[in-house]
Simulated assay, not measured.
Amino acid sequence: MKTSNYFRPGFIEKLMQDHQPENEIKVQSVGQFHVDNSASILSTLNAGSTGLEIGHFGLEVNFTKNKKNCSRRMVMKVKPHGDVTSTMLLGLAQMNGEPLTSVYKPFAKLTGFQNTHIRELEVYKKLGMPLQPEIFGLMEDRQNNIFLVLMEALEEVELLNSVMQPEKWTEEYIKESLSAIASWHASNMEAPKSLNKQYWNEDVPSKEYMLKLQPLWRGLLDNAVENLPKIYTPENTQRLRWAIENISEYWDLLEKQPKTLIHNDFNPRNMCFKSLENPPKLCLYDWELATFHVPHYDVVEFLSFVLPPQHYHLRTGYIEFYRQELNRLTGNYGNEQLFKKVFYYAALDFGLHRFGMYMMAHSISPYPFLPRVIHSYFDTLKQLSLITGNLGS
């Protein structure tokens, strides 16, 4: 099935009608407009790796809803199967050479990407919330490996694709983001029953999972040190090496903490603010990496991305702001010292997993934003280690 078939009025009408069975949808015409795919890392990496055209496609859809004329600009997201993405990432590991090539292969389907084709559809279908984009249709065709999301075009928004502009992330935007994600975390504690758990199985972070992948964490860290030695200094790397050798110790604490459905890609590449709202409202998209972990994990990532060096000193204040928001909503985070200790341990996990994977790709095709973000991340470890008693130093 060619991607062009997805743009036909009849196909779009069926998508929309299936998604809104309570309404009568009739699509008259579908036009196209250009959408920049460069901000989507998975789309970029998967380009050319499958017979389908993968990525985001802009559609101008004219339709009637209950006989009322409507026109909306939408984006069709055509997703690769997780097998394709996992195979592509194995190819990146092989391009990095030994020892990563041999170390990576046994864990190729355990790094969190194997079910990316279906997790996002599950979240949009079953956990729709105000911070997500408006969804017009979803399609899951396993026989033909077709997985589609038809969503609103994110226009008239602020801070879209602002990963290279951390200076634009003012205190107002940062606090609004932390409040919104705290609300999400509080609402989705302990695995929402509506989700199909088979898509969150072997690769959900746990003590057992982290120990099983211990050889991979070592390989990814060695690869990162080799490719970015000015940031992966001996002092910075020491904390992550301590983490690898002490997974059992710090996960003994993490295992006891409440888990929630985290976005797991919570950064300016996947978020914007709808400027027509007053005040502007966070919109968070690209949920394919969503998984279960302590809620602190998302905040580790977010603050690493949005804080430039001159604002590093504000990090602990933002962490405390988030803790208070989450505690207000759940009543479970009143112990500030414990919260920061868990935050530090979540940050160790983040550095081993997410930045290890990022660096594997960065060494082949550099991401301009990544050195700055990793530098900010290591400042997180430095600040929290001082507060929590020099853990891992």
Results as ranks from 00 to 15, higher is better:
residue 202 E to D: 14
residue 183 S to D: 15
residue 170 T to W: 09
residue 205 P to M: 10
residue 128 G to K: 13
residue 138 L to M: 10
residue 96 N to D: 06
residue 185 H to I: 10
residue 202 E to I: 14
residue 101 T to F: 06
residue 173 Y to T: 05
residue 130 P to M: 01
residue 123 V to S: 00
residue 133 P to Q: 13
residue 208 E to F: 08
residue 190 E to P: 09
residue 177 S to T: 15
residue 133 P to S: 09
residue 156 E to K: 15
residue 145 N to L: 14
residue 203 D to E: 06
residue 137 G to S: 10
residue 154 L to N: 06
residue 151 M to G: 01
residue 101 T to H: 06
residue 206 S to L: 11
residue 132 Q to F: 00
residue 146 I to H: 04
residue 146 I to Y: 02
residue 104 Y to K: 02
residue 94 Q to P: 03
residue 135 I to Y: 03
residue 167 E to S: 15
residue 119 R to V: 10
residue 189 M to G: 03
residue 99 P to W: 06
residue 141 D to S: 07
residue 95 M to V: 08
residue 174 I to G: 03
residue 180 A to S: 15
residue 125 K to E: 11
residue 179 S to R: 15
residue 142 R to D: 14
residue 136 F to L: 11
residue 97 G to W: 07
residue 134 E to C: 11
residue 150 L to R: 02
residue 180 A to L: 05
residue 139 M to A: 05
residue 112 G to E: 06
residue 184 W to L: 02
residue 95 M to R: 14
residue 145 N to Y: 11
residue 181 I to D: 01
residue 177 S to H: 02
residue 157 V to Q: 12
residue 129 M to L: 07
residue 181 I to Q: 01
residue 108 A to E: 09
residue 171 E to W: 05
residue 205 P to K: 03
residue 104 Y to G: 04
residue 130 P to H: 04
residue 205 P to S: 08
residue 104 Y to H: 05
residue 202 E to W: 10
residue 115 N to G: 03
residue 163 V to D: 03
residue 123 V to H: 00
residue 189 M to Y: 02
residue 159 L to R: 06
residue 148 L to W: 06
residue 159 L to N: 01
residue 184 W to Q: 01
residue 105 K to W: 11
residue 123 V to F: 00
residue 99 P to C: 04
residue 197 K to M: 15
residue 111 T to E: 05
residue 199 Y to W: 15
residue 195 L to W: 01
residue 185 H to W: 02
residue 207 K to W: 06
residue 135 I to A: 06
residue 190 E to L: 12
residue 203 D to F: 15
residue 133 P to W: 02
residue 165 Q to A: 07
residue 137 G to Y: 01
residue 118 I to M: 13
residue 173 Y to R: 07
residue 115 N to R: 12
residue 194 S to N: 00
residue 175 K to L: 14
residue 120 E to T: 01
residue 104 Y to M: 04
residue 192 P to K: 02
residue 200 W to H: 04
residue 98 E to A: 09
residue 133 P to K: 09
residue 123 V to D: 00
